[in-house]
Computed example of a mutant assay.
Amino acid sequence: MIRKFEDLKVWQDARMFVNVVYNLTNSDVFRKDYGLKDQIQRASVSIMNNIAEGFERDNNKEFVKFLLYAKGSAGEVRSLLYIAYDLHYIAKEEFETALEQSLNIIKQISKFISYLKTKTN
Rank of each mutant, 00 (worst) to 15 (best):
N60S: 03
R3H: 12
E93G: 02
A14T: 05
F30L: 11
V20C: 06
A43K: 02
L24H: 09
V29D: 12
N19I: 01
I113S: 06
S27K: 15
K111N: 14
K65H: 13
K9Q: 13
H88Q: 15
K111W: 07
D38R: 10
S46Q: 09
V64G: 10
L67M: 11
V77M: 14
G35L: 06
V10A: 05
N50C: 07
M48E: 12
K117T: 07
M1L: 07
L99Q: 15
G75K: 05
G35C: 03
A98Q: 12
I51Q: 03
V64F: 11
S110L: 12
E6Y: 01
F95H: 15
Y69M: 13
L36N: 06
N121F: 06
R42I: 05
L116D: 02
R15W: 08
N60L: 03
Y115Q: 09
I40E: 06
V29K: 13
K61R: 12
V20I: 15
Y82I: 04
N49A: 13
S79R: 11
A14Y: 04
A43D: 04
G75W: 12
F30G: 03
K4G: 00
E96Y: 08
V10T: 11
F63Q: 00
L24T: 00
L87T: 07
G75E: 05
S110K: 10
S79G: 15
D28W: 11
N26L: 11
E53F: 08
T97F: 15
S73E: 07
A84W: 03
Y89W: 01
N121I: 12
N23H: 11
I106T: 06
A43F: 02
I83T: 14
A84R: 01
F95R: 06
S110C: 03
Y115K: 09
D13I: 00
F55E: 04
S46M: 11
N104K: 15
D7E: 09
A70I: 09
V29W: 02
S73T: 09
Y34D: 00
G35H: 04
K92W: 01
M48W: 02
I90E: 02
V77T: 06
R42S: 10
Y89H: 10
I2M: 08
N23Y: 07
Y22T: 08
E6F: 04
I113G: 02
V45M: 11
A70G: 04
K117L: 15
N26P: 01
D58V: 00
Q101V: 07
Q101P: 04
E76G: 02
R3K: 14
A14R: 00
Q39H: 10
A43S: 15
K9D: 14
D38N: 14
L81I: 10
R31S: 14
D13M: 06
V20G: 00
I83K: 07
R78G: 11
E94W: 06
D38W: 07
T120N: 13
K65D: 03
I113E: 10
A98W: 10
W11Y: 12
V18A: 04
R15K: 13
T97R: 10
E96N: 12
I109L: 14
F63V: 00
I106A: 08
A14Q: 08
F30D: 04
V45H: 01
N50K: 09
I90W: 09
F95V: 05
F55I: 04
V10K: 04
K119E: 14
E62W: 07
S110V: 13
N121S: 12
D7S: 06
K4I: 11
N49D: 14
F95I: 02
